[in-house]
Design a protein around this nucleic acid. Structure first.
Lengths: 189, 189, 189, 189
DNA sequence: ATATAAGCGAGACGGTACGTCTTGTCTTGTC
DNA sequence: GACAAGACAAGACGTACCGTCTCGCTTATAT
C-alpha cells in the first residue's frame, strides 16, 4: 500500500546547521544583510540544500522564529496578580531591549522579515504578544476582576503590541514613564 | 561675507525626475524591488546624480514620503463632530486599502522602508496618524467633551495606528466589524 | 590519491564564446575600447564567468593571441631559398598590412596590450617574429651559406622585428623601398 | 587689420601646472592609470581648462614628452670617439633603467602612449634614438671612418632602437652581454 | 546483489544590482 | 573670455548574490 520513497532521507544535521546559521547571522547582521550564500557557507552546506527545502529567505526566517531561535526567551509576560504592574514591566523590558542597538536591530529586522512574509507577521504578532501572552494575561485579568467582563482583550492586546512596534520603528523607545502611560491609556480602571 | 558656492547649482529638474521615478516604481514594485539603477533609468538620470544627494535608497524613499508622493491623499481623517464615526470610517478606509494587493504592498513596503531608516519610521507614524491627524482629531474630541479632559491622546493615537500596522503586517485586515471593535476598545465612553 | 575536484567543471562552451567575442571585439574596436562588459554581452555570458578565469583584460587578450585568434594567418615567413627576397617580402607584407587603418589598429592594439602585460609582449615577439619565424629563417640562411656561420641570428631577428614595430608605432610604414633597405641594412654581404 | 581677441589670455600658470601634474602622475602611475580628473585635481585646475587646450590625454602626454618632462635627461648618447663603446654604454644604460620596475613602467607607458597617438610614436622614436641621438652618432662614426661611407645609418638606428623597445615590451632586458651582442650584430666592423 | 533514486557538498553558470570612478559637456560666479 | 568649481548623463569597473544547473559522492529502498 505505502508507496515508499526511495533515496536518502532528508538530513537532520543539515537542517539544524542551516537553522542555526540563519539564527546566528540574523542576530549578527539583521534580515536585510542575511544572504542564502552566507547561510550556506556558515552552515557548511550546499546552496541547493537550502533551496530544496525553503522557497525563500523569509520562509527560512519564519521557521527559525517558530522554533524560538530568534527571540530572547526572557520576554515572557508574568502573572503576579498585579495586572498593571505585569504589563508595565513587560513593556519596559521591551523598551529597554530596543534601547541597545542590538535590540532595535532585532526588532526592526523581525518587522522587515514580516513585511516580506505574512506568515512571519502572524507569527511575530503571536509570539510577541497577540494570542499567546498578552491576550492570556488580559483574560486572566478579566477573571480576576481587574478588567470588566466585557473587556475587548484581543483588541487591547493588539493595540498594546502595535503601539510597541510603532515605537520601535520610529525609534521612540526609552522615555521613562512611557511604558506606564501606554499601559494606563489602554487598561485604565 | 557671503560664503559663496561655485560650480553649477543642483538641478531641480533632476531632483524632481528622481523623486517622481522613485514614487512611481515604489508604487509599482514595492520597496524591496526598488533599485537605484531602475530609478536612474526611469528618471533619465545618471546614477551618480542620485548618490550625490541621497546616501541610501531609504533616504530617497523618506524624502518621497515627506513630500507626500507615496500615500494616497484621501486617507485624511475628517472631523464631522462624530468622533467614533470618524475614527471607524478612517480605520475602515485603511483596512479596505489593505484588502487590495496594491494596498497591502504599499503599507508593508512603507513599513519595510521604516525598518531600514528610523526617519522613515517617524515620518510614517506622523503621516499615517501620530501627531498629525489622529492626535488632532482626538484632541478635538476632548474639546468637544466626547473624551475626558485627561484622555491620553498621544498614547491612544499611537495604539490605534500601531494596531492598524500590526494587522497590516499579519495580513489580518478586513473582517467587518474589526474597525469598530478596535476603535471602541480604545475610545470607549 | 587523486585530488578530486567537486562541483560542475568549467564550461568549454563559455570559454570558447568568450575568446571568440574577445577576438571579434578586439578586431572591431582595438584594445583600448575593449571592455569586459562588452565581451560578456557579446559572448552571452555573465561577467563573473570571465573574472573567474582571467584576472585582467590583458590576460584574456594574451590567451587569444596564444591561440592565434588575433593575427591573420598569412603572415608566415616562407623559405624559397632566397633569404633576402623572403625577408623583404615578409616585411613588405607587414608594411602593407599597416597601411590599411585596420592593420595599423591591429598592430598598435597588440602593442598596447603588450604594454599592459609582459606575457603578451613575449608572445607577440615570438609570434610576430622572434624565435619562431625570423630566427628559423635566418638559421636556415646560415645553413645555406647565405649568412656567415657566426651570424647573430637572435639579435638580428629582434632588430628586424623591433624596427618593424617602431615603424608601426611612428606611423612610418609604406615608403616603397623601405623594406628592402631595412633588410639590407641588417643582412648585408 | 588685426582681429583682436577679447577676454583673458591663456593662463601660462595653468598650462605649467597641468604639464607638471601630468608628468608627475605619469611617472607615478603610468599612462593607463593617468586620468584627466586626476591631473586637474593635482594641478588645481578645472577640467575644462584641460579640455579647452588639449583634445585628448595622449596629446597632453605628447606635449610633455616634447618638452622633455617625461624622460630622464641622462640618457644622452655621448661621443667619446669610441663608437662601439658609446653605443654599448647607451644600450646598457637603457637596459639598466628597465630593470627597475619604475623604468620598465616608464618605457611601457611611453609605448602605450605611442599606441594611442602617432605623434607620440614619432616623438618617441626621435627622442629615444631615431634622428636625434643615434643617427647623429652613427653619422659621426661614418665621418670618423669607423663605419663604411654607405652605411645605412637611418635603418641601423631604427633597428637598434626597435630592438631595445622590443626587449622592453617582452621583459627581456638585463642579461649581461646583451647590449654588446646587439650592438655588434648591427654595427660590426 | 544490484539497480534506481534522492540527498548532499561543491561550485560553475547567466544574470542583476551594487556603489565607485571617469569621461566629456554644461553651467555657475569670479577675475 | 579664461578660469576653478562642480553638477550632469553616460557607462565601465570589479564585487556580491540570486536562483539554476551540473558534478561525483553517499545513503537508502525496491527489485
Amino acid at each position: 500500500m505505502s508507496e515508499q520513497r526511495r533515496g536518502a532521507p532528508r538530513s537532520e544535521a543539515a537542517r539544524q546547521a542551516i537553522l542555526a546559521a540563519t539564527a546566528q547571522l540574523f542576530a549578527e547582521r539583521g534580515y536585510e544583510q542575511l544572504t542564502i550564500e552566507g547561510i550556506a557557507a556558515e552552515a557548511g552546506v550546499g546552496k541547493q540544500t537550502i533551496y530544496r527545502w525553503w522557497p525563500t529567505k523569509s520562509a527560512l526566517v519564519a521557521e527559525c522564529l517558530l522554533e524560538g531561535r530568534l527571540l530572547p526567551g526572557q520576554l515572557t509576560l508574568p502573572d503576579t496578580g498585579d495586572l498593571r504592574g505585569d504589563l508595565v514591566g513587560w513593556v519596559e523590558q521591551i523598551f529597554a531591549l530596543m534601547d541597545e542597538p542590538t535590540g532595535r536591530g532585532l526588532v526592526t529586522s523581525l518587522v522587515a522579515a514580516a513585511t516580506a512574509n505574512v506568515e512571519i507577521g502572524a507569527r511575530l504578532r503571536d509570539s510577541l504578544g497577540g494570542a499567546e501572552s498578552v491576550t492570556t494575561r488580559l483574560t486572566a485579568g478579566v477573571a480576576a476582576g481587574q478588567l470588566p467582563a466585557d473587556a475587548p482583550v484581543v483588541e487591547l492586546s493588539e493595540a498594546l503590541v502595535g503601539a510597541v512596534l510603532l515605537k520601535a520603528l520610529s525609534g521612540r523607545a526609552g522615555q521613562p514613564g512611557d511604558a506606564a502611560r501606554l499601559v494606563d491609556a489602554l487598561v485604565r480602571a
